[in-house]
Amino acid sequence: MAKFNLNINGKTQEVEVDPSTPMLWVLRDHFKLLGTKYGCGIAQCGACTVHLGDDAVRSCQLPVSSVGDKDITTIEGLSEKGDHPVQQAWLEVDVPQCGYCQAGQIMTASALLEKNPNPSDEEIETAMNGNICRCGTYTRIKKAVKIAANSVNA
């Protein structure tokens, strides 16, 4: 057990856990930030995606001890009112089916647009390929990413 001070969604918060604990479980079990989802635990599905600094990372493979003072943003912290351009585009296209994978999809997409505000189809596919959606909403996700890109650039 060790104590960690973490910057999560703009707030510094303390937690005492085993240093090997993945951020996914720190977020879900200790901070009750339940928007970040468990899907595979081995960085293959993207359901657990959060931002570490500016990067989209798989929190299931991110030990709490490796975070340090970097900022962590979860779906709950992406925007105050749920009106981030990516979230708005998601609502406009009505992307979700079951919805389980969508927080991860949105976190991956928003990190992509932060770095590359005008991605090509191929760049979108490369960035989003780590996020599985069994419901099969990929064509809508791609459409929503493009709409969000246009609104970011507008």
Partner: peptide
């Protein structure tokens, strides 16, 4: 007529809707 998913906003903001989110 097309109506948006009534839970759309909750889904895109990560609200605890699923069984696995039960506390």
């Amino acid at each position: 007529t097309s109506k948006k998913n009534v839970d759309g906003h909750k889904i895109v903001t990560g609200k605890p809707l699923f069984g696995i989110d039960t506390q």
